[in-house]
């Protein structure tokens, strides 16, 4: 569609800290600030997974964070892109192999862009987001293609809905 080129102009971000040292988090905050002002690219820090397109995750994923990470990721509607910020987000960084760390975000959710740095500069984050936008656009197109293959849900298979059966029993 001709409208495609506008679609990457409004990536809304969601930030989750999966056990990082706050370094990258304050840099994400600095990105919102006037000096870098990522709202120029239409980005809003929504804080709400249901309305976000890009998830900025920092930290090496501690054991207690991982469920929340997956939970929040699963609440984001597709198309969505995950950016791992900082070395510890990419690979666990200095925390690799510590007993309560899982070593990198991609061990739990698929990461699309890895932003290196300890902590990563706002410029690097912006570069990562720009990278992510291309991926987002591609994912949107893929989704459009997949709509045609959509199958109707079970209801039309002539099978009884399980929940109804359960209700009767």
């Amino acid at each position: 569609m001709a409208l495609n080129k506008f679609r990457t102009k409004s990536p809304w971000i969601l930030h989750y800290n999966a056990g990082s040292c706050n370094g990258c988090d304050i840099e994400i905050l600095a990105c919102l600030a006037p000096k870098y002002d990522i709202e120029r690219f239409g980005m809003i820090n929504t804080g709400n997974p249901k309305q976000s397109d890009i998830m900025l995750v920092t930290g090496p994923v501690t054991k207690r964070s991982r469920e929340r990470l997956v939970d929040i990721y699963s609440q984001m509607p597709e198309p969505k892109v995950v950016i791992a910020c900082g070395s510890c987000g990419c690979s666990g960084g200095v925390f690799r192999g510590m007993y309560n760390c899982e070593g990198g975000i991609d061990q739990y959710i698929p990461v699309d862009v890895y932003v290196p740095g300890c902590g990563c500069r706002p410029e690097q984050i912006i570069a990562g987001v720009v990278e992510a936008l291309a991926i987002l656009e591609k994912k949107t197109k893929d989704m459009e293609g997949s709509v045609k293959l959509h199958n109707d849900p079970i209801e039309q298979d002539g099978q009884t809905n399980r929940r109804e059966v359960a209700a009767v029993i």
Binding site: Y16, N48, P49, K50, E67, R68, L69, D71, I72, Q75, P77, H150, D152, P153
Partner: peptide, 14 residues
Amino acid sequence: FKHVDRAKEYMCGE
């Protein structure tokens, strides 16, 4: 609504 997926409520991941 048909063909719409259900999501659970936002609870801060908790």
